[in-house]
Amino acid sequence: MRFAILQFPASNCDQDCLHAVRLLGHQADYVWHKATSLGDADAVVIPGGFSYGDYLRCGAIARFSPVMQAVQRFADEGGLVLGICNGFQILCEAGLLPGALIRNRSLQFRCEQVFLKTAAHDAPFTEAIPPDHVLRIPIAHGEGCYFADEPTLAALETHRQILWQYCDAGGAVTEAANPNGSLRNIAGICNQARNVAGLMPHPDRASETLLGSADGRRIFESMAQCWARRRAA
């Protein structure tokens, strides 16, 4: 399987994503933000970082980049797109995912390991995650507080678009386990068509036991599993 890893001038997790995907034995290539095509990619990962410096709002400028027009078309055709951290922010700004990510309630940047409960196992990003397996994956963001209005939240629930929620070590979704004030402890969601997802935690930093956790691999593995099934069909 071939992953395209987008590269904005101030992406800083592009190498981490490439590394994590290649560890799983897949191919991965960078695609520069000025590119107008994704080549023959089977899936797209939008990595973390600060894209264009993120001075107005995180992801606000990136969504207008040439490569994002290509991602939009790719997503419209059903291609798998995963946005991590800044990538999640960009997808929300671009309208590919509902809602927005605002300043952490603490007003401070937060870098720490968190636990994630997988709230829906029937998405291309979660299908390889064992039921009841609590993921341990780090976060690193200053603006990761998920916000959407009530009707949007209700729709997310109705359509089972909430994929991951912050929880404690035992899997309970509690206020204390919420690192940034996200509504409903939302850590990651997908679109209604289920082919575009975003999450604030970094699976790319949790793909090796050497770094403390390999839980993040499950997310990339899910994508590969889904892609292989689609291709076989």
Partner: peptide, 15 residues
């Protein structure tokens, strides 16, 4: 240090 991104670059073995 929780305000510092101390894990970026996938090399932080002991944080």
């Amino acid at each position: 240090y929780r305000q510092y991104d101390h894990m970026v670059r996938d090399g932080s073995v002991v944080c």
